[in-house]
C-alpha cells in the first residue's frame, strides 16, 4: 500500500496541475507533495487558486506541518521542501537567483528516505532535468515511478530526462494521471511490476 505521492514539474506545469488536481476526489487517501518551478510571482496565490478549482484540498506546505491524506501540498517559492522521518515537512532556503529552488530532486530524495517502497514519484512536463536523480532513487528503493509521456507533454525535456535516468513503471498522457492515482491508491491495488516482497 502506498503512503505518499511526490510530483515535480516546471514549464507547462500550471496546465498539468489544472488537469490533475480537480480530477481527484476529496477523500483521496494519500498526501501529495508537489514542487513546481513556476514564476515566483505566483507566490501563495497559486495554492489558493488550485484549492478553489479542486475538491481535494490544496495548500502551501508549512514548516513542520504533518503530511495528511487527502491534501495536496505545494512547495513555497524559493524554499526547498523536504520530508522529515516523522512525516512532517521542513523547509530550507536557497538562493533566489539560482532557479532550481525549490528543487524536485531534494523533495524526491528526502521523501524516498522516509517512505521507501511506499512512495509514488511522478515527473511531468518541464524544461530542465531536475527530478531525474530523485526519480532514480525512488525507483532504486522500490517505489513506483510515473513519467508523463514526453511526446504529448507541453515541454518534453524534463520527462525525457527522467526516462533517461530511471525506468518508469508508467508512461502516460496527462489526462490519465488522475485516474491512475485513483487506481493505485485503492487499498486492494497490487503492484503489477517490480515484484515487491510485500505483495
Amino acid at each position: 500500500m502506498y503512503k505518499a505521492v511526490v510530483m515535480g514539474m516546471s514549464a507547462g506545469g500550471m496546465h498539468a496541475l489544472q488537469t490533475i488536481l480537480p480530477a481527484l476526489p476529496r477523500s483521496f487517501p494519500l498526501p501529495i507533495a508537489i514542487v513546481q518551478h513556476l514564476s515566483p510571482h505566483y507566490d501563495s496565490y497559486l495554492a489558493e487558486y488550485l484549492d478553489r478549482i479542486s475538491s481535494i484540498s490544496v495548500k502551501e506546505a508549512e514548516d513542520k506541518e504533518p503530511l495528511q491524506r487527502g491534501t495536496v501540498y505545494l512547495a513555497p517559492p524559493n524554499y526547498h521542501l523536504l520530508v522529515e522521518p516523522d512525516q512532517t515537512f521542513s523547509l530550507s532556503v536557497d538562493a533566489r537567483v539560482n532557479y532550481c529552488c525549490p528543487s524536485i530532486d531534494v523533495l524526491f530524495e528526502s521523501a524516498s528516505d522516509v517512505f521507501e517502497e511506499a512512495l509514488i514519484g511522478v515527473v511531468l512536463t518541464g524544461a530542465n532535468a531536475d527530478g531525474s536523480c530523485g526519480l532514480k532513487i525512488i525507483k532504486a528503493r522500490g517505489g513506483l515511478t510515473i513519467v508523463q509521456n514526453p511526446a504529448t507533454a507541453e515541454s518534453p525535456y524534463m520527462p525525457r530526462a527522467a526516462l533517461d535516468a530511471a525506468s518508469a513503471d508508467y508512461v502516460v498522457d496527462i489526462g490519465s494521471i488522475a485516474p491512475l492515482f485513483r487506481r493505485l491508491s485503492q487499498p486492494q491495488s497490487r503492484r503489477e511490476h517490480g515484484c515487491s516482497v510485500n505483495c
Binding site: 526547498h80 523536504l82 522521518p85 521542513s90 530550507s92 528526502s110 528516505d113
Partner: peptide
Amino acid sequence: YSWASLKR
C-alpha cells in the same frame, strides 16, 4: 536540527 536537510 531538522533531519532531512542536515543529512543532505
